[in-house]
Design a protein around this nucleic acid. Structure first.
Length: 449
DNA sequence: TCTGGGGTCCTAGGACCC
DNA sequence: TCTGGGGTCCTAGGACCC
């Protein structure tokens, strides 16, 4: 049996030493983020139902409150909701990542200015965990409201704030804040044992952070239906039934004992992937190679942005299934892995390796619906080992990469690219309903007449 | 003929998140 | 007809070593 004891959080001990004042964790979560971004530049849509689609206009990934009310389902396929959408005159947008990325940065920057960068952990494009400064319990509610108002005032994006002693309870608080915005004013604080009990009793197990579909089904089967019932199970039980240390941690977090630490603001990724569905099935090897070269370029940019180099590369392609079935998502990917001669962040070296892997994978006569590139075994690029067998052309290449990145990043798009990435792009995804890139293109800026 | 116990490293796969 | 993309963490099990 492994040791499942979890060390007490040292920062927590520090805070306990000051009587009456404690530090709590907050989660700040943008409300219907993608929809809010679209509405910012379309005030006419303020009280109208809005949805935003995933890449390839496949699924619905963001819904305004009005769209939720009329019954549009989250993550549901667009085509199934289409009649409902037309019937209620819902505004529909393709994903506009230039816009969302820029507004996300503004929201996070606001939090960093309010609290100090070291207290903010960006958790996703629309969420951040925040370590609140020490304060007395009665001050917490107003402080959370202050955060919410400042972000909205500075960026135009409305957020919900949940506060509690642990990350899991903060997420539960945030869930409640969103459930009933009229009452909560988008802020919910769970500090006392009584507040926590009441909250957890009202939350269904499947709405709890850390419990996905598989565990929810298992737990319900065992008669555990509320977050409170789960909280009252033993740590040893959770270790046995919910994935070992992960489950044990979940129980402790629900009891208010912080076990999931704040991540360092400057952590680097351990794996980088770029994968896409094609707009339509592809059956030519040259088109697949173009797509893979494009994805590799994108992945290499991400790699350089975090100052890493990759030691290995994996390419996969997914054949178009002959028959559609319920488990179509699990279409089996054909993949090939290659170790690079040495860690690199140079786009054309990565493309060369990737394209070779396509040659090994591709079968004439098959058609494919999706492809992707994954870079692994990442190391800091300062640590790249010299290799006797590779001539030191590195400097010139590095200079070229820097130049490309500067130009492409300032436009948030790929203006400059390698010829291998192609210029036809028949395989490109559909994005028929994309709004203008208001904040990153001069020619698409918002006009006031 | 007899054939232990403990450690590390790697990969595959399952679960979760937004 | 049409169902996204990009990550993390953890465990189990096999190979290998002494």
């Amino acid at each position: 049996m492994q040791d499942i004891s979890i060390a007490a959080n040292p920062t927590n001990i520090l805070f306990e030493e000051v009587p009456g004042r404690r530090s709590f964790k907050a989660i700040v979560d943008c409300n219907s983020f993608y929809c809010s971004c679209e509405r910012l530049f379309r005030p006419d849509l303020k009280h109208k139902p809005v949805v935003v689609l995933s890449n390839n206009d496949g699924c619905i990934v963001s819904r305004s409150d009005e769209a939720k009310k009329i019954g549009v389902e989250m993550a549901g396929p667009y085509f199934k909701a289409k009649s409902l959408i037309q019937q209620h005159d819902v505004a529909v947008f393709s994903s506009n990542y230039n816009l969302y990325g820029d507004l996300s940065w503004r929201v996070m920057e606001t939090l960093r200015m309010l609290l100090g960068a070291s207290r903010v952990e960006v958790y996703s494009v629309d969420e951040a965990f925040v370590n609140l400064p020490e304060m007395e319990e009665r001050e917490v509610q107003d402080y959370a409201l202050h955060i919410r108002h400042t972000v909205e005032q500075w960026t135009g994006i409305s957020v919900s704030v949940g506060v509690a002693p642990s990350k899991t309870l903060a997420k539960a608080a945030n869930f409640m804040a969103k459930e009933n915005k009229q009452v909560s004013n988008c802020v919910k604080v769970l500090l006392s044992a009584e507040q926590q009990r009441e909250a957890l009793q009202s939350i269904r197990i499947n709405n709890l952070w850390g419990v996905g579909g598989a565990y929810a089904a298992k737990l319900i089967n065992m008669g555990i239906t509320s977050a409170w019932e789960l909280r009252n199970m033993s740590v040893a039980w959770a270790y046995k039934n919910m994935g070992g240390v992960t489950g044990a941690r979940l129980i402790r977090e629900l009891r208010g004992e912080p076990c999931i630490d704040m991540k360092e603001p400057l952590t680097t990724k351990k794996m980088i992937a770029t994968t896409r569905m094609f707009g339509a099935p592809v059956n030519s090897i040259s088109a697949i190679k173009e797509a893979i070269a494009t994805y590799t370029s994108r992945a290499a940019e991400k790699l350089r942005r975090q100052h890493s180099a990759a030691g290995s590369i994996t390419v996969f392609i997914v054949p178009k299934a002959q028959h559609h079935s319920a488990d179509f998502h699990h279409g089996t990917a054909l993949s090939r892995y290659a170790r690079l001669p040495g860690p690199t962040a140079i786009t054309h070296e990565l493309i060369k390796a990737a394209v070779q892997l396509v040659d090994e994978l591709f079968e004439e006569g098959s058609s494919y619906k999706k492809a992707g590139v994954m870079l692994g075994e990442l190391v800091p690029d300062t640590a790249i080992q010299g290799n006797l067998f590779v001539p030191p052309a590195g400097n010139r290449n590095r200079y070229l990469m820097n130049m490309m990145d500067n130009i492409n990043f300032s436009m948030r798009d790929d203006i400059l690219k390698f010829a291998a990435a192609g210029t036809h792009k028949n395989w490109k995804m559909r994005q028929e309903l994309r709004s203008r890139r208001y904040t990153t293109r001069w020619e698409e800026m918002f006009e006031v007449k």
